[in-house]
Computed example of a mutant assay.
Amino acid sequence: MEQVVLIVHLILALFLIVVVLLQRSEGGALGMGGGGGGGLVSSRGAATALTKATWAIATAFIVTSLTLTVLAAQNRGASAVIEAGETPAAPPSQDGLPFTPQLPNLGGSTGGDGPATPPPAE
C-alpha cells in the first residue's frame, strides 16, 4: 500500500513540475507559449485550464503527502504522528557511558566538586 502511494506521489510531483513550468508567467520571461492567437483553445482558456490542473494536482500531492505520513506513523507503531513529550536521546560517548558535557577549567581549581578557589595573591 505504501509503495503504491509513494509511486503516485512521485508521479504527481513530476506532473506538478511540468504544469507549473508550462504556465505563462506574469512578466512573460520564462513562460512557454505566447504570441499569435488562433487554434482551438484561446490563450485565456489555456491559462484557466492550466490553473485548474495545477490546483487539482497540488491538492492530490498534499493528500498523498499526508497519507504517506500517516502510513509511516502506523508502521512505526506510534499512536499519533507527533508523540507528546517525546524527547530525543542524548548521544552516547565513546566509552559507552551517557554523554556529560565538560566545562572548561578557567584556572580556579584543579578539580573536585567544591567551589573554585581563587589563585593566591602576591
Rank of each mutant, 00 (worst) to 15 (best):
Q3K: 06
Q3T: 11
V4G: 03
V5M: 10
I7Y: 09
V8K: 02
I11S: 05
A13G: 12
A13P: 01
L14S: 11
L16V: 01
V18E: 04
V19K: 02
L22F: 09
Q23A: 08
R24F: 11
S25Y: 09
S25L: 10
G28R: 04
A29D: 13
A29S: 08
A29F: 14
L30Q: 10
L30K: 06
G31W: 02
G31A: 15
G34D: 09
G34K: 03
G38Q: 12
G38E: 14
L40R: 09
R44Y: 12
A47C: 04
T48S: 08
A49F: 13
L50E: 04
L50A: 05
L50H: 01
K52S: 12
A53E: 00
A53I: 03
A53P: 00
A53N: 03
T54V: 03
W55H: 06
I57F: 06
I57N: 01
A60C: 08
F61Y: 15
I62H: 07
L66Q: 07
L68D: 03
L71W: 00
L71P: 00
A72I: 02
A72M: 04
A72R: 06
Q74V: 08
G77H: 03
G77C: 06
S79L: 09
S79D: 10
A80I: 04
I82H: 06
I82T: 10
G85V: 01
P88V: 08
A90E: 07
P91A: 14
P92M: 03
P92K: 05
S93L: 09
Q94L: 12
F99T: 08
T100E: 12
P101Y: 10
Q102H: 11
L103H: 10
L103T: 13
P104Q: 07
P104E: 08
N105D: 15
N105L: 09
L106E: 07
L106A: 08
G107C: 00
G107F: 03
G108K: 06
S109M: 00
G112E: 01
D113W: 15
D113M: 15
G114N: 14
A116N: 15
A116K: 13
A116P: 06
T117H: 06
P118N: 09
P118K: 15
P119L: 13
P120G: 07
A121F: 07
